[in-house]
Design a protein around this nucleic acid. Structure first.
Length: 117
DNA sequence: CGATTGACATATC
DNA sequence: CGATATGCCAATC
């Protein structure tokens, strides 16, 4: 059965697509990271990783309590955006504070840090 | 309201 | 490893 484009029914609560993504990101434990693809998968949005990135982009503006910094791309690298707020390295700094080690290339070891639900 | 863009992913060359 | 191509969907122009 297919869910509607914008919303899908879960129990008796109607959740918008983005709220679904937010719910997943909130569940990422400290010291772990998740890829956009993984979040999309868990949010029943397999193959739509772009929506995850777009959703998180808005999260930052909303200053939500969502740990957006724990979401990185499948290469284990932080995706930067020149359009984002000034502090580009903020994400990396936050991850390092959680004990995540970055490679000299600016990547993390997904085999070890990737969140496994 | 049509066209463009964008925190991505996967496959192929 | 990187350049190119395709899919995917919402927000923005």
């Amino acid at each position: 059965m297919k869910a509607d484009a914008g919303t899908q029914r879960r129990g008796e609560i109607l959740m918008s697509t983005y709220d679904n993504i937010y719910a997943i990101v909130r569940q990422i434990p400290k010291g772990r990271v998740a890829t956009y693809g993984q979040v999309a998968d868990l949010a029943h949005l397999y193959g739509k990783a772009r929506l995850v990135g777009y959703a998180l982009y808005q999260v930052d503006e909303r200053l939500s309590d969502i740990p957006w910094h724990r979401v990185i791309n499948s290469k284990g690298e932080i995706s930067y955006s020149p359009l984002r707020h000034g502090g580009d390295y903020r994400q990396r700094y936050l991850l390092e504070q959680e004990g995540i080690i970055f490679s000299p290339e600016g990547r993390v070891n997904l085999r070890e840090y990737k969140w496994q639900p």
